[in-house]
């Protein structure tokens, strides 16, 4: 236990640096993933050619199944090592849940609501921005939440391609046989994931606070 505390007090600048790198990688991946996946999800809702949807969902699913270590390795010849390939790899993982939830969220909007919006003179863009997007926000947010939690956990692997982060502590700890280092890296990632989940949960509740009961009552 003593070793543990002395490690924290001696090395806290390194720990903080690792934490910051970890956050940067994870959140860049999730934010970029959202920026890519939400519009694609919306396009798929409006797409009338059935097989395109199947293909896109298949590809997004495929990314999900590639082992993370392998994906990171594959990206090295393309993007080299460091933060960039790490973010790209994690971004690819984040696509599927956000895409799927955006799609489901848009599908879930009541047809009566859409009919009356159209009949009252909402343009297509206004319908998406003012009606469908706010109403599917709970779905999209929960997609982002799920993604964030496991992206934070997987980001520990990013240290293997030189992106740093909490994984760096684990890898170094293995190298020099310092269990407290491995422990700090692991616990750090867990705490980070839990805190991020909690904060996003609060954000989700705040964004949808007014009509949550509406959604269940209106059906």
């Amino acid at each position: 236990m003593n070793e543990f505390w002395s490690f924290i007090t001696e090395r806290y600048p390194d720990i903080l640096l690792a934490l910051r790198q970890h956050l940067t990688i994870s959140f860049s991946a999730v934010i970029l993933g959202t920026i890519v996946a939400v519009p694609i999800g919306i396009l798929l809702v409006y797409n009338r050619v059935g097989w395109i949807n199947s293909v896109v969902f298949f590809i997004a699913n495929l990314f999900q199944t590639i082992p993370s270590l392998a994906l990171l390795a594959i990206l090295i010849p393309l993007l080299g090592i460091g933060v960039k390939p790490a973010i790209l790899a994690l971004l690819l993982y984040s696509l599927m849940p956000i895409l799927r939830n955006t799609y489901d969220g848009f599908q879930s909007v009541d047809k009566g609501v859409l009919n009356s919006a159209k009949g009252m003179g909402y343009s297509a863009a206004q319908t998406i921005l003012k009606i469908q997007l706010p109403l599917s926000l709970p779905y999209i947010m929960s997609g982002i939440r799920i993604t964030t939690v496991y992206i934070i956990s997987w980001a520990t692997l990013a240290s293997l391609i030189g992106a740093g982060g909490l994984g760096q502590l684990i890898v170094s700890g293995l190298g020099v046989n310092k269990p407290e280092m491995i422990f700090i890296g692991g616990i750090g990632a867990v705490v980070l994931a839990l805190v991020a989940d909690g904060l996003l949960g609060l954000l989700e509740g705040w964004l949808t606070r007014r009509y949550r009961q509406t959604r269940s009552a209106a059906v």
């Binding site: 009541d110 047809k111 009566g112 609501v113 009919n115 009356s116 919006a117 159209k118 009949g119 009252m120 003179g121 009606i131 706010p134 109403l135 007014r210 009509y211 509406t214 959604r215 209106a218």
Partner: peptide, 17 residues
């Protein structure tokens, strides 16, 4: 045109948000 014509439907279609 639709903005100048009132429209009421069976399922009400109020915007829940």
């Amino acid at each position: 045109l639709r903005r100048n014509i009132g429209y009421v439907i069976q399922s009400v279609g109020l915007f829940p948000h």
